[in-house]
Amino acid sequence: MRRQLSFACEGAALAASLDEAPGATGLLIVSGGNEIRSGAHRGMAMLAGRVAAAGFPVFRFDRRGIGDSEGENGGFEFSGPDIVAAIAAFRHAAPQVSRIVAFGNCDAASALLLHQPLSLDALIVANPWTYDSDAEEGETADEPALPPASAIRARYLSRLKDPKSLLRLLKGEVDFRKLVRGLSALGKSTAPAAPDGVPARIEVALSGLACPATILLATGDRTAQAFMENCPAALNRLPVERLASPSHSFAGDDADWLAERILEILGR
């Protein structure tokens, strides 16, 4: 059964949804970007229903200034109080829960890392956001941020080995504007990470976690590729599950893979 409720965070009323289940282990879902708690194409709502059907209660919420919640939207870097309040509200709404695992994708994953310590028992962080701003220089809705140079090299090398890609090039079916933009990025040197930037802070957070964490990566996703390049040490230090997919939000059939990984961790 899905129940709608609200809780307070620094004077603002935040909207939440609880998918009830009898289990003592619960899942807290933190939404990424400016998405409401149902997620992209209701992905998080469907995930919550699936996890609850397996016996684990699930709590989702809209942070301040998003969806049905009051207050001002300060972005993921200022969402620490929202997460703390959501954890307390989850424990109050489902008093049988003694263990909480939190899941976040994109900047929600980064929020869970940057706002540690939190009273959580485990983390599942997917495609963590490691850019220092909401948009790279020159980025538009039609022309999103380029992936790291290493990912561009790997992609073009793969295409050069593919006869179909070469045939498309000869037939003029390739978007030369995008091709030139991608090739130009190969010649750019990568600026050193700022010590107080998001990548460096996430690296520090990952190295000092007080609870177990699992990293989920859609290896064809640009945000995941940037994380792999910006935080390489974490890939050797923490459990990492990889899915060969470009789907940033684990849409379509990838939703099954995501649900299976989450249920496996909840059942430990």
Rank of each mutant, 00 (worst) to 15 (best):
S245T: 11
S98M: 10
I152D: 05
L186W: 09
L114Q: 01
P246L: 07
F78I: 05
F90L: 02
R153C: 12
G104H: 03
D68F: 00
I100Y: 06
G71E: 01
G75T: 05
P22Q: 06
T219N: 05
V204M: 10
L206A: 03
A244N: 14
D121F: 11
G197A: 06
A126T: 07
T190C: 12
A141P: 02
F76Y: 14
I262H: 01
L217Q: 01
P195K: 10
K171P: 03
V180L: 12
E241C: 14
L216Y: 01
A13F: 05
P117S: 09
L166V: 11
E264M: 15
S207L: 09
I265R: 10
G104E: 03
S247A: 14
E70S: 07
F176G: 07
S158E: 15
L113Q: 02
A210R: 15
A48M: 02
D62N: 08
A210N: 13
L27G: 01
L217R: 02
R37L: 06
G187H: 10
G104N: 04
N34A: 15
L170S: 12
A85Y: 00
E139M: 09
R201C: 04
T214Q: 11
A88F: 05
D132T: 05
A255M: 09
T214F: 02
A45V: 04
L235I: 09
G220P: 04
A259Q: 12
L123P: 00
A53N: 09
L179R: 09
L27M: 07
D162M: 10
G71M: 03
R63W: 05
I36T: 13
L170R: 12
A88G: 13
L169A: 15
A141N: 08
D221G: 06
P199L: 04
T140D: 08
